[in-house]
């Protein structure tokens, strides 16, 4: 049963499924705070289907991953190893990090890029209970006027956007839903 869980749950049509999942990621990153649906992955708990789909779409042997305590189970590790072949590394070396907001602390441990290469930064996949209840008001690129959205914290994202063009970018995932918060978004309390 354990083996089956590790070997299954990938995309059934990798090229088409990952194309659709990527469009959800693209739309999310292009329109911060707006909730998108993403499907196709059935990873072992506690990894959400949305987080699983993001990893299947973007992670591979060239992208080191940090797995925070909340998600660091044998099943999750083996599922990621089998489906993405991504190496698991320390937080500071990671291209992607996965975990709950609390487990990912302190976020200062993640790469934020350099002045010449701000793209050499980490993307956090923050697993949430629910992302449908807004807690903050967002503005900036991708948002016509303002957008309300759920954020697990405020100060950390205010500080992150103050570093622009440096900073990390986040996906928030719950079930089959995701939303994103790039470093370029300005964040205020609701």
């Amino acid at each position: 049963m354990f083996e089956a869980e590790v070997l299954s749950g990938g995309f059934s049509n990798p090229a088409q499924d990952s194309a659709r999942a990527f469009r959800a990621c693209l739309d999310a990153m292009a329109r911060p705070g707006r909730i998108q649906q993403i499907a196709g992955a059935v990873p072992p708990a506690p990894l959400s289907p949305a987080a699983g789909a993001i990893l299947l779409t973007l992670a591979d042997a060239t992208t080191p991953i940090f797995i925070a305590k909340s998600h660091d189970t044998e099943a999750v590790r083996r599922w990621i190893a089998f489906h993405c072949s991504a190496p698991v590394v320390a937080a500071s070396d990671a291209d992607f990090a996965i975990g709950t907001w609390d487990a990912l602390q302190p976020v200062s441990q993640f790469a934020i890029g350099t002045a010449e290469y701000p793209d050499r930064s980490a993307t956090l996949i923050v697993e949430c209970e629910d992302i449908s209840a807004p807690t903050a008001t967002l503005s900036g690129p991708g948002i016509e006027t303002t957008q309300t959205a759920y954020l697990p914290n405020l100060d950390a994202f205010v500080a992150n956007s103050a570093q622009f063009p440096l900073g990390f970018d986040c996906y928030f995932t719950a079930g089959n839903q995701l939303s994103a918060l790039p470093r370029s978004t300005k964040v205020e309390a609701l």
């Binding site: 990798p14 090229a15 088409q16 990952s18 194309a19 990527f22 990621c25 693209l26 990153m29 292009a30 779409t57 973007l58 992670a59 591979d60 060239t62 992208t63 291209d95 290469y117 701000p118 793209d119 930064s121 993307t123 690129p141 991708g142 622009f164 063009p165 970018d169 790039p182 470093r183 370029s184």
Partner: peptide, 30 residues
Amino acid sequence: YNFAYLDEATKRMIRRALLKGLAIPGYQVP
């Protein structure tokens, strides 16, 4: 050939670059 010609590893690499590009508008991602 794969769907949309490129192999999946190449698409992942391009997709990651596109997402960084959106996160840092106007910055040229190698």
